[in-house]
């Protein structure tokens, strides 16, 4: 469970820590200025990370109770 929480920290580091380094327009990725792409990428990654967390989390085993 501890490892899972570390995984969930990544988006915080990516968005809050990363923003300093990506505050630029170029290169454009998927048509978006780089700073916007960076944030969008982290949003998508967050969804993926939370899916992994959900899968690994023992409290989700078993049915809806």
């Amino acid at each position: 469970m501890k490892m899972i929480r570390l995984l969930a920290l990544l988006p915080f580091i990516g968005i809050l820590g990363g923003i300093t380094f990506v505050n630029q327009v170029t290169p454009y990725v998927l048509g978006m200025p780089f700073i916007l792409f960076w944030i969008v990428m982290w949003v998508v990654l967050t969804s993926g990370i939370m899916a992994i967390v959900f899968k690994l989390d023992p409290s989700n085993q078993g049915g809806d109770s």
């Binding site: 988006p11 915080f12 968005i15 916007l36 982290w42 949003v43 990370i49 939370m50 959900f54």
Partner: peptide, 23 residues
């Protein structure tokens, strides 16, 4: 312009917290 991107960012981070907080 760019400052508006903060809106996407905070929601995303809040949802991570929600996984543990809301239950």
């Amino acid at each position: 312009g760019a400052p508006t991107f903060y809106i996407i960012s905070y929601g995303c981070l809040a949802y991570i917290i929600s996984y543990w907080l809301l239950p």
